[in-house]
Deep mutational scan, measured.
Amino acid sequence: MLSDEDFKAVFGMTRSAFANLPLWKQQNLKKEKGLF
């Protein structure tokens, strides 16, 4: 599990902003970052 700081560094957004994205968009971002 990423820390909040690492999460923001990897995804360029906060966890709450990420959580507001549609599920497909979350999955695409995870795949792009190799976290899926």
Rank of each mutant, 00 (worst) to 15 (best):
M1I: 13
M1H: 13
M1S: 12
M1C: 15
M1E: 14
M1T: 12
M1P: 13
M1Y: 14
M1Q: 12
M1D: 14
M1L: 13
M1A: 11
M1V: 12
L2S: 05
L2V: 07
L2Q: 06
L2A: 05
L2T: 06
L2N: 05
L2H: 06
L2E: 07
L2P: 06
L2G: 05
S3N: 10
S3G: 06
S3I: 04
S3A: 06
S3R: 05
S3Q: 05
S3P: 04
S3D: 10
S3T: 13
S3W: 03
D4M: 04
D4S: 05
D4A: 05
D4T: 03
D4I: 04
D4V: 04
D4P: 05
D4N: 05
D4W: 05
E5A: 11
E5T: 07
E5F: 07
E5K: 09
E5N: 09
E5M: 08
E5R: 07
E5C: 07
E5S: 08
D6M: 11
D6W: 15
D6Q: 13
D6L: 10
D6K: 10
D6N: 08
D6T: 07
D6G: 09
D6F: 08
D6R: 08
D6H: 09
F7W: 07
F7L: 01
F7V: 01
F7N: 00
F7H: 01
F7D: 00
F7R: 00
F7A: 01
K8Y: 15
K8S: 07
K8H: 12
K8C: 11
K8E: 15
K8F: 15
K8I: 14
K8T: 09
K8M: 15
K8P: 03
A9Y: 10
A9E: 11
A9R: 15
A9V: 12
A9N: 12
A9K: 14
A9D: 08
A9C: 14
A9W: 08
A9I: 14
A9F: 11
A9H: 11
V10L: 15
V10S: 04
V10M: 13
V10P: 00
V10E: 04
V10N: 04
V10D: 02
V10Y: 09
V10I: 14
F11I: 03
F11M: 08
F11T: 02
F11E: 00
F11P: 00
F11Q: 00
F11A: 01
F11Y: 11
G12K: 04
G12L: 03
G12T: 02
G12E: 04
G12S: 03
G12R: 03
G12H: 05
M13K: 01
M13Q: 01
M13N: 00
M13V: 05
M13H: 02
M13F: 06
T14F: 03
T14V: 03
T14G: 05
T14Y: 04
T14L: 04
T14P: 05
T14H: 04
T14D: 10
T14S: 12
T14A: 06
R15I: 06
R15A: 06
R15Q: 06
R15L: 06
R15W: 06
R15S: 04
S16Q: 14
S16E: 15
S16T: 12
S16M: 13
S16H: 11
S16W: 12
S16L: 13
S16K: 13
S16D: 12
S16N: 10
A17Q: 14
A17G: 03
A17I: 05
A17K: 06
A17E: 15
A17H: 06
A17V: 09
A17F: 06
A17Y: 05
F18W: 05
F18L: 02
F18H: 00
F18Q: 00
F18A: 00
F18P: 00
F18I: 01
F18Y: 05
F18V: 01
F18G: 00
F18N: 00
F18R: 00
A19L: 14
A19G: 09
A19S: 10
A19P: 00
A19Y: 15
A19K: 11
A19T: 07
N20D: 12
N20Y: 06
N20C: 14
N20H: 11
N20S: 14
N20E: 14
N20A: 15
N20T: 12
N20I: 09
L21W: 02
L21M: 06
L21K: 01
L21D: 01
L21S: 02
L21R: 00
P22M: 03
P22F: 02
P22R: 02
P22S: 05
P22A: 04
P22G: 02
P22W: 03
P22L: 02
L23Y: 13
L23Q: 09
L23F: 12
L23G: 08
L23P: 11
L23H: 10
L23D: 07
W24S: 07
W24N: 06
W24Q: 06
W24R: 04
W24F: 05
W24I: 06
W24D: 07
K25A: 12
K25Q: 13
K25G: 04
K25Y: 09
K25R: 11
K25N: 06
K25L: 14
K25I: 13
Q26S: 02
Q26H: 01
Q26A: 02
Q26N: 01
Q26G: 00
Q26D: 00
Q26F: 02
Q26C: 01
Q26P: 00
Q26K: 04
Q26E: 00
Q26L: 03
Q27W: 11
Q27M: 13
Q27D: 12
Q27H: 13
Q27I: 15
Q27T: 11
Q27R: 14
Q27N: 14
Q27A: 13
N28R: 15
N28P: 01
N28L: 15
N28W: 15
N28V: 14
N28S: 14
N28H: 14
N28A: 15
N28C: 15
N28Q: 15
L29W: 04
L29G: 01
L29D: 01
L29F: 04
L29T: 02
L29Y: 05
L29R: 03
L29V: 05
L29H: 03
L29M: 09
L29K: 02
L29A: 03
K30Y: 15
K30D: 04
K30Q: 13
K30P: 02
K30W: 15
K30F: 15
K30T: 11
K30A: 15
K30N: 08
K30H: 08
K30G: 07
K30M: 15
K31A: 13
K31V: 11
K31E: 10
K31L: 10
K31N: 10
K31F: 12
K31G: 07
K31W: 13
K31C: 13
E32K: 09
E32V: 07
E32Y: 08
E32S: 10
E32G: 07
E32L: 11
E32R: 10
E32M: 09
K33T: 08
K33I: 11
K33N: 09
K33Q: 07
K33Y: 10
K33C: 07
K33W: 05
K33F: 10
K33G: 05
K33L: 15
K33E: 03
G34M: 10
G34D: 08
G34Y: 08
G34R: 08
G34K: 06
G34T: 07
G34F: 09
G34E: 09
L35W: 15
L35E: 09
L35S: 09
L35R: 08
L35G: 09
L35K: 07
L35N: 10
L35P: 07
L35V: 13
F36I: 14
F36K: 08
F36R: 09
F36G: 12
F36L: 14
F36S: 10
F36T: 13
F36E: 12
F36A: 12
F36M: 13
F36V: 12
F36D: 13
